[in-house]
Simulated assay, not measured.
Amino acid sequence: MDAQAFDRSCVKHRLVRFVTAGGLALVATVTAIAPSASASSSLTKVRFAYDFPWPDMELIPVIVAQKEGFFKAHGLKVSIVFPPTTSTTVQMLATKDTEVALLSTSDLVVAVKAKVPVVSIANYSMKNNWGLFAMPGSKLSLATLKGKKVFSWGDTWTTAMLPFVLKKAGLTAKDITVVNGEADTPLLKSGKVDFVTNTTNYAIPGIGGKPVQIVGKAAGVPAVPVWVYATGSSYAKKHGKTVSAFMAAMKDATQWSIDNQGKAVRYFDKAFPDSGYTHAYNVQAWKLTVPLLKNKSGDFFVQTKAQWSTLARAMVDVKQIEKAEKPSAYFTNKFLP
């Protein structure tokens, strides 16, 4: 990830989907709207960039905050921007084309390594629910992993985690065949791969039934959260009150989404009828997401030094980064409600 990867020209003329509470529209650039208080409204505009080029149920708290008025109650008008690729969200923060974003924790570590001025402001999830999945009834296990085909999205998270699985199994990268692609479940169901890599809240409803799971500690992966909310370092310094307001609204919306799961899912279905996910999938996926959202103390969002030092050291071990920075280089809890 070099400096040119974060040049504004890389994202300025991309075609992305831009979503507001009123519906879906296309815009030719993500730089068209700057954060400001409208002359006709006291609400501050904030653009939230998702970590994936299309919507899925992990957007539910943001949709709920729009629909139930939590953003408005905290003085904000928040719209959602979808990046052209999974690697573009960090770029959008770096080039100030969005104010807040959802990122994987590994993406943020790689960005800091590349000296991109971004910072994590809250955990989205609190656990590492990533692992390997096989079809229901399969006899596959870590003991039989050698010689098998494993699907990978080719993202930084999978690249960071897979070596730990291999170490747990006593194998090396040469002992498996990694298959990259844009869709995991069809390859698994057709027998073209033996395992897919994903998280429980996506893989289980996608595969159906009771898929074979090798997840978390059983997979040998570090116990760290997968996703975080992040912002640009300079934006955090200049607009701290806005960042705090965003997180306060997200706390209200996340709790509401837990307490009203059925209605929360219907909000998502209505906002994104062409997402490609069925209502049944979204119901199960969100139900599986809910237990990931609070820590053992029952708190949302709170990050720890240990989670960041553990992840950074793990990424050094698998040679994704050369050295681990101090935890304070990656995160702050100062904007939490």
Rank of each mutant, 00 (worst) to 15 (best):
residue 197 T to V: 10
residue 198 N to Q: 11
residue 204 I to E: 03
residue 205 P to Y: 02
residue 205 P to S: 06
residue 205 P to I: 02
residue 206 G to K: 05
residue 207 I to K: 00
residue 209 G to P: 00
residue 209 G to K: 01
residue 210 K to T: 15
residue 213 Q to I: 00
residue 214 I to D: 00
residue 215 V to P: 02
residue 215 V to H: 09
residue 217 K to I: 06
residue 219 A to G: 15
residue 219 A to R: 06
residue 219 A to K: 08
residue 220 G to V: 11
residue 222 P to K: 06
residue 224 V to R: 12
residue 224 V to P: 04
residue 225 P to A: 12
residue 229 Y to F: 15
residue 230 A to S: 10
residue 231 T to A: 06
residue 232 G to V: 05
residue 232 G to Q: 04
residue 233 S to H: 04
residue 233 S to I: 04
residue 233 S to R: 15
residue 235 Y to R: 01
residue 236 A to D: 10
residue 236 A to H: 06
residue 237 K to C: 04
residue 237 K to V: 12
residue 237 K to N: 12
residue 238 K to V: 08
residue 238 K to T: 14
residue 239 H to G: 03
residue 239 H to C: 01
residue 240 G to H: 13
residue 240 G to D: 10
residue 241 K to F: 07
residue 244 S to Y: 09
residue 246 F to C: 11
residue 246 F to G: 10
residue 247 M to R: 05
residue 247 M to S: 12
residue 248 A to H: 07
residue 249 A to F: 09
residue 250 M to K: 13
residue 251 K to Q: 15
residue 251 K to G: 01
residue 252 D to V: 01
residue 253 A to T: 03
residue 254 T to P: 05
residue 258 I to R: 13
residue 258 I to F: 11
residue 258 I to A: 13
residue 259 D to H: 12
residue 262 G to D: 13
residue 262 G to N: 11
residue 263 K to A: 14
residue 264 A to Y: 05
residue 264 A to W: 02
residue 265 V to H: 03
residue 265 V to M: 07
residue 266 R to L: 11
residue 267 Y to G: 04
residue 268 F to N: 05
residue 268 F to Q: 05
residue 269 D to P: 02
residue 270 K to R: 14
residue 271 A to F: 03
residue 271 A to P: 01
residue 272 F to E: 04
residue 272 F to V: 09
residue 272 F to R: 08
residue 273 P to L: 00
residue 273 P to M: 05
residue 276 G to T: 15
residue 276 G to Q: 13
residue 278 T to G: 15
residue 279 H to K: 15
residue 284 Q to F: 01
residue 284 Q to D: 11
residue 284 Q to M: 06
residue 285 A to N: 08
residue 286 W to A: 07
residue 286 W to N: 07
residue 288 L to C: 09
residue 288 L to H: 07
residue 289 T to L: 15
residue 291 P to T: 02
residue 295 N to Y: 07
residue 296 K to G: 04
residue 296 K to E: 13
residue 297 S to H: 11
residue 298 G to C: 09
residue 298 G to I: 03
residue 300 F to L: 15
residue 301 F to S: 01
residue 302 V to Q: 11
residue 303 Q to E: 14
residue 303 Q to G: 08
residue 304 T to H: 09
residue 304 T to Q: 03
residue 307 Q to V: 09
residue 308 W to C: 08
